[in-house]
Design a protein around this nucleic acid. Structure first.
Lengths: 189, 189
DNA sequence: CTATTATTTCAGTAATTACTGAAACATCGA
DNA sequence: TCGATGTTTCAGTAATTACTGAAATAATAG
């Protein structure tokens, strides 16, 4: 790899991180390289830079396309395909979250819902089902929130996140005034 | 596996999901089983239920301990070690998030910060560094928010999440009144 | 159409990761 | 202490996943 040390350490690190998620080291490195590249790259350039076989790059790019994380374009007067990552890191983050939801969360919710339909036959099963319900509710709550919030524009989202737990004060206030919909204080467990 | 179909499908599914994260299928299944079990289980019970070798279970439990996801306890008059998952699914979620932060996010931020210290020598490097800065800022924003918010008690957190994008209205209002960053109580309606 | 260049597929192989059984180690009651 | 029971370690092996080069396929210019 003949790139700047700065880029090199990023690419290598990202590769390692990738392999801790469902993504192979190769794919992680390819994406990291695209991410920091000012210009779109073609497959040969990627293969040369990362010292991967051409076919490996081809497969990696295919996987990245399946995640909708790369844009494919053509340069005038050049038959080769050029790839780039979205310029906006928030977009990348959202796309990743959406894809993971589609691939992992949604099937999990489906499975959980199916299991919640079953009629438990003994106390153990009753307990298990209760636990599944808790997990289901948590996942649903978090993903619904995420779904809500990811539609916000970048600036508002950043604001909201910056607000962080300060929002708690807002909630406390809302509670105090006994405004609508809030969960009233009841049991502690 | 001689468990109820309800439990069985959950355990198998969870195993698959686990293997899409950095966690092996085995470990995922062990945790799923502990999660739905009303009582703590010892290693032999786990091995028998999931049909894994005793040593495999031992290693899996060790990994789960390193994630701080299981509690180890002893039953009176029984020398064997019994394992269980926390009763509260929120606790599990938080622990998981904390561990992942420690293992993945923090090292990534460290790497990014180091790369941001370097002085770029050409425009490409300047661009790369700018991209790294964007990624750094995003990760930091999100993790700071998470850090803030995970300290809230379960009820408040759930409320906050349920609020979702409605918080946007709050922000809009705040903007309109040109208040400073704090969540002030200056609401009219 | 043909020659040239670009891309993908895929069977074989390499590398990595997961799993097992046997042995070592640990704990505890008598 | 010993013997019984429980747990961990680890070297070897199995299973999985990643990667390559060669061949097939696709696209385009002439």
């Amino acid at each position: 790899m003949n790139t700047a040390p700065l880029v090199q350490s990023f690419v290598l690190h990202f590769g390692e991180m990738g392999s801790r998620w469902g993504i192979s080291r190769t794919v992680g490195q390819i994406y990291a390289l695209l991410y920091v590249s000012a210009n779109p790259l073609n497959a040969d350039e990627i293969a040369a830079t990362l010292d991967f076989s051409r076919s490996n790059v081809s497969m990696g790019l295919k996987e990245l396309e399946s995640w909708r994380l790369v844009r494919l374009q053509h340069l005038p007067g050049d038959r080769r395909e050029y790839f780039s990552a979205p310029e906006d890191v928030w977009t990348i983050f959202r796309t990743l979250a959406e894809e993971r939801r589609k691939r992992e969360i949604d099937p999990t919710l489906t499975m959980l819902r199916a299991a919640l339909m079953a009629t438990p036959t003994d106390p153990d099963e009753r307990y298990a089902q209760q636990r599944l319900r808790e997990m289901h509710d948590l996942i649903e709550l978090v993903t619904t929130w995420f779904n809500d919030v990811q539609r916000l524009d970048q600036k508002t989202l950043a604001q909201l996140l910056k607000l962080g737990s300060k929002a708690q004060k807002f909630l406390a206030l809302k509670d105090k005034l006994s405004l609508s919909s809030g969960a009233k204080s009841a049991t502690k467990r």
